[in-house]
Amino acid sequence: MTATAPESPELAIASSGLTKRFRGGQLAVDQVDLAVPRGAVYGFLGPNGSGKTTTIRMLLGLAYPTSGSAQVLGVPMPEGAVRVLSRVGSLVEGPAFYPYLSGWDNLARYDSADASVSARTARARIGTALDRVGLAAAAKKKFRNYSLGMKQRLAIAAALLVERDLIVLDEPTNGLDPQGTREVRTLIRQIAAEGITVFVSSHLLAEVEQVSSHVGVMRAGKLVFQGELAALRRTAAPRIAVRTPDLTAAAEVMKKLGLADPVAGDDAITAELGDVQPESVTAELVHAGIAVRALTVESPSLEDLFVGLTGEGFDVER
């Protein structure tokens, strides 16, 4: 633990060289430098097994980093866990409650463990939290009789029991139906609208794309991208694709126009468009007498970018 995270009050989460090597030698998290601005909705993306949950466990003081450091709300972790965590609501790796207790009693149990809150306000807070996730009617039902979606919602209610500055949601829509997924998204928007920082992990880009202001992308334990979502979009360089029998001549024209990275196929050639307007490419090609059968501009979707960053999947990288 030599490196220290930058002292930065404007960051809700900051880490520096955060590394976790499991006892078996496996490097689960490798030199991760997170910077989550306050008030952001930060989408923490990566395929399963890319180190997201281990990172979150270290941020919440559940696991101890092998090296590097992390700060949550300006407090070093894991040393400051007891001091800072009552301001952090979290859902880590799915809901976990006592099956033999009701939803209400489960929340009351977690609430009683929090030394920073008053017993007098417990009833009101538990009631509000259950209301907020639409579980008021099922409050007295035993947790073991809850449906998967209800369990997930109860976990979110637990994260909202106390006024928070930061909410950490690890795969909050895992196992939810489309309605449930939409509800969670709405809830995230509401929470963010209150000025609370939201750190939400997911293996699905589509899930956080609509709510996030910032994203961090993990791959094999490394943070391969971090920044505003708009910045990620900007990295998507549009490519022009020209279908033509005169591949060599077309390549000449593209080269003349300064298009980067030309790739010739069987009957088409593609290249990065850059700042060149597609119509001037058309004009030049026609001017050079090249038979153009089709000309298209392709912008890679965010999904493509994401897959480009994280790999195609199915190949376990470690």
């Binding site: 919440l60 003081g61 866990a81 007891v82 409650f97 977690y110 463990a113």
Partner: peptide, 18 residues
């Protein structure tokens, strides 16, 4: 086993206190 330990600790209950 129930997984409630991680939630108790993030409440935070405090390890020694728990």
């Amino acid at each position: 086993g129930y997984g409630t330990l991680r939630y108790l600790l993030t409440v935070p209950a405090g390890r020694t206190r728990l």
